[in-house]
Amino acid sequence: MSKKPEKAALTSATIEEQTAAFLKSGGAVEYVGKGKSGQVASSGSKQINLKE
């Protein structure tokens, strides 16, 4: 059997390089508090009301 490449190490290195390039180009990292998604809601609630 052949060995599989170590994807985790490769992925981590790639993410690190992309993050460094992003910050170097003037990008900024925004802290999002615990329990928050960081996404802006584009529509109202998507819950289904079965009583109607």
Rank of each mutant, 00 (worst) to 15 (best):
residue 1 M to W: 13
residue 2 S to N: 13
residue 3 K to G: 05
residue 5 P to S: 10
residue 5 P to H: 06
residue 5 P to C: 11
residue 6 E to S: 11
residue 7 K to W: 12
residue 7 K to T: 10
residue 8 A to D: 15
residue 9 A to T: 15
residue 11 T to G: 04
residue 12 S to M: 07
residue 13 A to Q: 08
residue 14 T to H: 13
residue 14 T to K: 11
residue 15 I to E: 12
residue 15 I to F: 14
residue 15 I to L: 12
residue 16 E to I: 02
residue 17 E to G: 01
residue 17 E to Y: 01
residue 18 Q to K: 08
residue 18 Q to P: 02
residue 19 T to W: 03
residue 19 T to D: 06
residue 19 T to A: 10
residue 19 T to P: 01
residue 20 A to I: 03
residue 21 A to W: 00
residue 21 A to R: 00
residue 21 A to G: 01
residue 22 F to E: 00
residue 23 L to C: 00
residue 23 L to W: 02
residue 24 K to G: 00
residue 25 S to I: 00
residue 26 G to V: 00
residue 26 G to R: 00
residue 28 A to M: 08
residue 29 V to W: 02
residue 29 V to Y: 04
residue 29 V to N: 07
residue 30 E to D: 10
residue 31 Y to S: 04
residue 32 V to K: 03
residue 32 V to R: 09
residue 32 V to Y: 06
residue 33 G to Q: 09
residue 37 S to C: 07
residue 38 G to K: 02
residue 38 G to E: 09
residue 38 G to N: 07
residue 39 Q to I: 06
residue 39 Q to D: 14
residue 40 V to A: 15
residue 41 A to V: 04
residue 41 A to F: 03
residue 42 S to G: 12
residue 43 S to P: 07
residue 43 S to H: 02
residue 44 G to T: 05
residue 46 K to I: 06
residue 47 Q to A: 14
residue 47 Q to I: 02
residue 48 I to P: 02
residue 48 I to H: 11
residue 48 I to N: 10
residue 49 N to P: 06
residue 50 L to S: 14
residue 51 K to P: 00
residue 51 K to R: 11
residue 51 K to F: 13
residue 51 K to A: 09
residue 51 K to G: 05
residue 52 E to R: 12
residue 52 E to I: 08
